[in-house]
Design a protein around this nucleic acid. Sequence first.
DNA 1: AATATTCATCGTAAATTTGCGATGAACTAT
DNA 2: ATAGTTCATCGCAAATTTACGATGAATATT
Lengths: 107, 107
Amino acid sequence: MNYLIHMQRTAAPIDYSIQEEKIARYAKALAHPIRIRILKFLDQQACCFTGEFTEEIPLAQSTISQHLKELKDAGLIQGNVMPPRIKYCINKEAWMEAKQYFTNFFS
Amino acid sequence: MNYLIHMQRTAAPIDYSIQEEKIARYAKALAHPIRIRILKFLDQQACCFTGEFTEEIPLAQSTISQHLKELKDAGLIQGNVMPPRIKYCINKEAWMEAKQYFTNFFS
DNA sequence: AATATTCATCGTAAATTTGCGATGAACTAT
DNA sequence: ATAGTTCATCGCAAATTTACGATGAATATT
């Protein structure tokens, strides 16, 4: 049991407030210019298929799919299956929640 | 010169708008709950020395210093040397700019 | 049945982020 | 001069992010 020596301290048990976690989580989703572009695009066009992003953005399809997943995981968008395509829309509830948190934060 | 085969495509030459880059940059700075806490703390207390954060937040001093650097690099805070300490304040200009960008974005 | 389209997911590589302890610079106090 | 305080920075390890091509699932078309 000599592990005690030189062991890294275990992850700090900080308990963040809901506000701290929500803002950080949404901010993380917004922390890439491509994802900003995707959201702006969705905001203008109501809804989009993945293919429309791949036409618009010069990145590999798999990369764009990954960014869409990040936005989906954060809750900011949702995908509806319309075989063989998937239609992405902004999740208005989460969008409004994010807006509210940021607005309060910058009060 | 067989490197051509199987070479990774060079970084996509996407040119983002100022808005896309600004929002993504500020969002990146906000993308960690500790940094949210630091900013809230500064917003309440006007200004702080590094030491006050290390008392408040159960993380190594070097880690907190790193988070302060991230906020400083994003422009959201500024540090004034008051030997042997450093007094951090919110950079109100950048703060207002960030607020404006987020507000417009969530229009 | 065979082929084509759309898209998520896997595997991989490179870059970045996050955390720590150790060190040293800058200044104060003894 | 010596010792103490405050803090950024370095060096390192682990985790995460970002990008790609390849693959395969699901469905539509021929």
